[in-house]
Amino acid sequence: MLLLAGLVAATFVGSGLDAGEPLRYWGTQEAPSTGWLDTGRGALYEVRVGSEIPGWGRVKEVHADHIVLERILTEDDKRALREQGALVHDAYEIHLPREDLRHPDLTVPHPPSR
């Protein structure tokens, strides 16, 4: 799936992402083990299993229709959860679907143009 129009491709270099920023997955390209992520700021990053994405974690799996990231919680993270009375877990496993699968298009049928 190639949905890269208008985006600038770059190799992810491990900086510039904050956890609060949206992260979107655009699928694999030629190499099935390589996926494309963007931060919503126009830059596109090439990632593979093991790539570290600051604020989001490490790429664990790359699939055509989704990518899996793993973020291990620090002791500070856990302490913050505990202080809120929240469930304390050890890791996040983040399953990010390919962006275009989230909003498929219902195309207008033969739009009349009278």
Partner: peptide
């Protein structure tokens, strides 16, 4: 360990 799985 306990893992929280999230589909954002």
């Amino acid at each position: 360990t306990l893992v929280r799985r999230v589909r954002p």
